[in-house]
Amino acid sequence: MNLTLHVWRQAGPSEAGRLVTYDAPDVSPEMSFLEMLDVVNERLIERGQEPIAFDHDCREGICGSCSLVINGVPHGPRRGTATCQLHMRTFSDGDHIWIEPFRARAFPIVRDLIVDRSAFDRIIQTGGFIGVSTGSAPDANAIPIPKAVADRSMDAAACIGCGACVAACPNASAMLFTAAKISHLGLLPQGRPERTKRALAMVQRMDLEHFGGCTNYGECHTACPKEIPLETIALLNRDYLKASLVSRD
């Protein structure tokens, strides 16, 4: 099939960006979306032009590197699917496709479709861990954890840190990302001791990084390639409220 792409090109953080139109002829429906971009880039390079820069690595939907807003939707039209797992059979011959970076004040553009998501790391640094140093662990089976609890924790832990939730949110809130980590750790008995401190610190960091507040649109969950449940946000709110009341810091 033959497609027309409208791609955001921007040479650097302080340069002006614009949409540039490219033809993408002879696209196979079996190609992944990123393979389609590879082919477009190969043609650009052969003509001596600079290829479209985009983040990607594992191409298996797990590393969280890939991003892209495709036709206005982070990670494109398929639910629960990261861009790298999106295949061209989702599109039709003659389609125009608009490809833009994830947009949020907290995710400054680095180049073309690449944005800086290091704010997520800084949120984790403030409390997204269990404070256990190497060598100090008891036997793995010492604490039985009900299967349902472990499963819920795993549902939240599946977050790949891609940032689609932020790109989808009208407020550019990082609530789903932060809530996923707070739920993953807080649901487990190992994560309980630091629960209060964790909720306060991570939410505070989120605000400092210029992510917006959560007003329950739910767009984050819709865009999430791992379909992190919205209930994690309720868990975060509960932890945060409780922490605000009991914290002695």
Partner: peptide, 22 residues
């Protein structure tokens, strides 16, 4: 042996049986 202990302590949500053990 130590690795599994360490990872569980860190909060790695390994698969569990209904009795709560790994």
């Amino acid at each position: 042996l130590n690795i599994i202990d360490q990872c569980v302590a860190q909060g790695v949500p390994f698969a569990r049986e209904y009795g709560g053990l790994l």
